[in-house]
């Protein structure tokens, strides 16, 4: 039991921090544009593929730096020459633009790297186990992912709250016109935020790529979870996105590890349920089996009971 708690907690925090690498950028970009960027997870996928490609030529570590930079530049260009023009035609146009972009990226990735997963490997230097507890080992690479994402989180926190640029960003999200009249180049700031947000997503892709599966469907499968995170946290709220990322990371990881069904719970209460009872398989399904829908259940509940999310305060 202790073993399950320790490992699920570590994995849950890790998954949550990775989600936050994406959710933080998505939240900042949402505050700026006023619409959700459907292509955000595509930049995560591009990060993984770029990282993979670079790792084949010059190794994993250069890819860790170069791939996010490249994707960040691509993101900045998309903002400057795509979104900024589309923005003039309203939110619906923007939304459709990001939607289209997500499909284009997926198609391009398939054309260049094929439909099957690529062989993105963990770097040799980290291919050992960090520690063993009750016969279960925790891989060093997972430890690296955890420390890396925590480090970036702290860096982001310092940047946003302790530096002049961070203050300009914070103020520009809510009062862009006034920040402009004080002499700050708000469009440039927004382009940089968009680029950095995409770069962070790419970084998550580079470090998650070798541990998970690098394939063309990875953006489409992560995207919905990401939206759950930012909506549950409260659209536009960074602290909300942080709490929701960890929450969903932990819930998902623990759920997968639990082999309890409703029938088991009812048995404790003295009620016997079998497959033949009314409801059938519903009683027999274990928590692990329904794990994938738990985030969406949370989304629905939050939308009903706390429409602004856990920490949000803005209308959409």
């Amino acid at each position: 039991m202790l073993e399950l708690v320790v490992f699920s907690s570590l994995n849950g925090v890790l998954y949550g921090m990775l989600l936050f690498l994406l959710a933080s950028g998505l939240t900042l970009i949402f505050s700026m544009m006023g619409v959700l960027n459907f292509a955000h997870a595509s930049f995560y996928m591009l990060g993984a593929y770029f990282g993979f490609q670079i790792s084949r030529y010059i190794g994993f570590w250069p890819g860790l730096v170069v791939a996010p930079l490249l994707v960040g530049v691509i993101g900045a260009l998309v903002e400057r020459y795509g979104l900024r023009t589309v923005h003039k035609h309203g939110h619906v146009a923007e939304l459709l633009f990001t939607f289209g972009l997500a499909f284009i990226v997926e198609e391009l990735v398939q054309m260049v790297w094929g439909k099957i997963p690529v062989d993105y490997r963990i770097p040799g230097a980290l291919n050992f186990s960090a520690f063993t507890l009750f016969d279960t080992t925790f891989p060093a690479y997972r430890m690296f992912m955890l420390l890396m994402s925590i480090g970036i989180f702290l860096g982001l926190l310092v940047l946003l709250t302790r530096t002049r640029v961070g203050l300009i960003i914070q103020a520009a999200l809510t009062h862009p016109n006034i920040v402009g009249t004080l002499g700050h180049n708000v469009p440039l700031v927004f382009m940089m935020v968009f680029g950095v947000g995409c770069g962070l997503a790419a970084l998550a892709g580079v470090i998650a790529g070798p541990a998970l599966v690098t394939q063309p469907a990875m953006a489409a499968s992560l995207g919905p979870i990401l939206f759950v995170v930012v909506v549950v946290g409260g659209l536009g709220s960074l602290s909300g996105a942080f709490v929701a990322s960890l929450l969903i990371g932990l819930i998902q990881t623990f759920a997968v590890a639990l082999n309890i069904s409703l029938a088991d719970v009812m048995a404790h209460l003295g009620v016997t349920l079998t497959r033949e009872s009314f409801g059938g398989d519903l009683w027999m399904a274990t928590v692990a089996q329904v794990a994938p829908i738990i985030p969406y259940l949370l989304l629905v509940l939050v939308l009903i009971f706390r429409p602004h999310g856990l920490m949000g305060n803005r209308d959409t």
Binding site: L167, Q170, A171, H175
Partner: peptide, 16 residues
């Protein structure tokens, strides 16, 4: 003013 920022931070944002 920028309501979420402190008085000092508001003043810093005035500087070019």
């Amino acid at each position: 003013i920028f309501p979420g920022l402190t008085v000092r931070e508001n003043l810093i944002l005035g500087m070019k």
